[in-house]
Design a protein around this nucleic acid. Structure first.
Length: 409
RNA sequence: GGAAGGGUGCCCGAGUGGCUAAAGGGGGCGGGCUGUAAACCCGCUGGCUUACGCCUACAUAGGUUCGAAACCUAUCCCUUCCA
């Protein structure tokens, strides 16, 4: 792969650079020659959410410039759970769960970063080197370099300290992540760590640890550096990626392509420009122009491009077409569909209750009374209304944005 | 280890024997206006039920009482002060 020396400029103009441990050093390292960098993801779930996807963009940009990427799955760290910026302790997950999650995640990584080809990412799991570590050895080697007073002063633990304290167990998290960086340096000559801004404390801990721990041959370590990207937030400051159904996942069986497309079609106007910067390769000037000229069009383009990046072009096109048809009052072959069994000529309430868009008959009535239910584009006027006996397929609309094609078996 | 205060619904927070499925706010959902956006206005917001109603819920477990989120006892957790 051809080396490109402008990785830092790209990251900067696309808005990925938030904090750096050594700004000048990083610029120099990234423009001199290919280096090895790493990004860590804790397998706390069997899927990636949009925040991971965002961090992986950064990974891909570096990779495309010819730098060598190490993707670390935190099979050890996930067993503790990062306490950074949390109010409470994370629910503990079992070793089996963590291992299964790690397998699932490594199976979908290829959609976002290169894992084959001429500059493939190295996928590693810190369970391999941290789980076998002996406690006393670890404390002597790594723990000795950590100052508790300094750790407690860190912004990322403030919530925990305010809300009732931090367990010793969780404080071990930072030691482990810091050690990962040093370990990856010994093994792969990794000298650059990237991550979300919530990871900044842990990234810095690794940078500092690298200065304190001699390398495996007793030689001095090269300068190791870190950088964080902003968190993917909306203009009101809240995190992006929460949908009506829960977290916005990247896997289509957890969050459908249509829902993904819809999510991005409905973001605030103010967020469109940033999202275009993050997730497309369009020149910045063009992006700014687009948003200024026609924000609605820019938003549509962005929703399509992001969906394409997550699910591929074919699926994104389908979702786009489906949305277009549904919102213009038509039917759509690819609309979200559910098959149910119901008596001929049953009431609308019964039909709704059998689908996933309402939870119970009571709720179905509530929606009908609020005028929120349309069947085949006709508003359901009363809770006593029954279905057309001659049809086996209905297009149900709940509210302005929820569509469901119901087929009666 | 001691003392005082506290734990209420998704979140914040009022409530100190019946009028409490629990004020008020936030969030969420639905309606109107728009552009499938925001802002704004209106409605809904523990679950099930056509309905009468039933079930579950004010940290946990017991108790007092016709009746408890509220009173008592024990347990757990948190906050502040002292050690």
């Amino acid at each position: 792969m051809e080396f490109k020396n402008n990785a830092f400029e790209i990251l900067e103009e696309r808005g990925f650079v938030m904090l750096t441990s050594h700004l000048e050093e990083i610029k120099k390292l990234l423009s001199d020659k290919p280096i090895t960098f790493y990004l860590g993801i804790d397998p706390t779930a069997d899927d990636l959410h949009i925040g991971h996807f965002f961090a992986l963009q950064m990974f891909k940009i570096l990779q495309d410039c010819g730098h060598k990427g190490v993707l670390l799955l935190g099979g050890a760290t996930a067993m503790i759970g990062d306490p950074s910026f949390r109010n409470d302790m994370r629910r503990l997950i079992t070793r089996e769960e963590v291992d299964r999650n790690a397998r699932e995640i490594s199976g979908i990584l290829h959609r976002f970063i290169d894992v084959d080809g001429d500059n493939p990412a190295i996928v590693v799991n810190n369970a391999d080197w941290i789980r076998p570590k002996q406690y006393v050895d670890f404390m002597r080697e790594v723990g000795v370099h950590f100052n508790v007073a300094k750790m407690l002063a860190a912004e990322c633990y403030k919530n925990r300290l305010k809300e009732g304290g931090l367990t010793f167990f969780e404080m071990g998290y930072m030691l482990m992540q810091a050690y990962d960086f040093v370990y990856l340096n010994d093994k792969y000559d990794c000298i650059f760590q990237i991550g979300g801004s919530d990871q900044w404390g842990n990234i810095l801990a690794g940078v500092e640890l690298s200065r304190k721990m001699a390398n495996k041959d007793g030689k001095e370590r090269p300068v190791m550096v870190g950088m964080s990207c902003p968190l993917l937030t909306k203009m009101d400051g809240t995190k992006m990626g929460k949908t009506e159904k829960g977290v916005l996942w990247v896997n289509r069986d957890k969050t459908s392509v249509f829902d993904c497309f819809q999510y991005f079609s409905n973001v605030f106007d103010e967020d469109v420009e940033r999202l275009l910067r993050f997730f497309t390769k369009l020149p910045i000037i063009e992006i700014i122009g687009l948003c200024k000229d026609d924000i609605v069009k820019a938003k549509r383009l962005m929703a399509f491009e992001v969906t394409k990046k997550i699910h591929g072009e074919e699926e994104a096109l389908k979702a786009q077409e489906t949305a277009k048809q549904l919102f213009s009052g038509g039917d759509a072959t690819d609309a979200p569909t559910e098959e149910i069994q119901i008596e001929n000529g049953a009431s609308v309430v019964e039909l709704l209750a059998k689908t996933s868009i309402v939870k119970s008959k009571r709720e179905a009535r509530e929606f009908i009374e609020a005028g929120a239910i349309l069947i085949d584009n006709k508003q359901v006027a009363s809770i006593d209304e029954t279905l057309d006996k001659n049809k086996t397929e209905f297009l149900v609309k709940k509210g302005k944005k929820t569509f469901l094609k119901v087929i009666i078996k």
